[in-house]
Design a protein around this nucleic acid. Sequence first.
DNA 1: CCGTATCCGTAACGATACTG
DNA 2: CAGTATCGTTACGGATACGG
Lengths: 124, 124
Amino acid sequence: MSADGGTADRQVPLVTTAAYESCPVTGVLRTVGDKWSPAVIRVLAEQPCGFNELDRAIEGISRRMLTRTLRNLEERGLVSRAPQGGGSTPSRVEYALTALGRSLREQLRALGTWAAAGGQDVPG
Amino acid sequence: MSADGGTADRQVPLVTTAAYESCPVTGVLRTVGDKWSPAVIRVLAEQPCGFNELDRAIEGISRRMLTRTLRNLEERGLVSRAPQGGGSTPSRVEYALTALGRSLREQLRALGTWAAAGGQDVPG
DNA sequence: CCGTATCCGTAACGATACTG
DNA sequence: CAGTATCGTTACGGATACGG
């Protein structure tokens, strides 16, 4: 066997930190891999929604986490935020999935189909 | 408009805790949504690997987290663990992707393709 | 070589009170 | 209605020393 890399030897990382951080898969998993994003996406896929409507639609979520989740999804371009009634305190804010958000929803559905078919057992 | 649920009103949660916890999508995201699972899957997709080989192949991972990640993936049936050399202290343990793990890898690749095409920006 | 045990810091999450 | 502020807890992850 030669001294330098043959078949199974590996001297250098296959997954470097830089490459991993800029990986699209890593990115989307970071975005949607938190506790509540999938729930929010699911509800908004049904129909656009106000803040408190969302709060009631998702059992167990706190207003704090709902805010954070919405802001995160908005930042990523998956959710749009539209305040209504131009005053200083909007009487209603409508959240909706963007086109990108709807396409992500389809990806997640595909993943769900795979998981359900593949016998992926559920946590708990 | 009638008093009971018409079009936009919602009195009951659309996403209940029980349904959410047992959701396949939630399950797979919990499994693979942590920091290192995607990296491990990626390396093992290349070829089966020993513990320290994995450690060196993934820059920045600690032995502790590698162990935890491998155990988690094994528990979910995505990775197989095969100790070699029957003694009390195996001289080598080979980790590999199971058939289920390989199929998940394909799903993740699809997600990555979507993310790269859709202009999902990366974190950082 | 293949891990486990321990300690510690940070970040995520939950509860609740308060504001515009 | 639509949030923010504050606080406490718990889970995740990193460093490192040790054991089989």
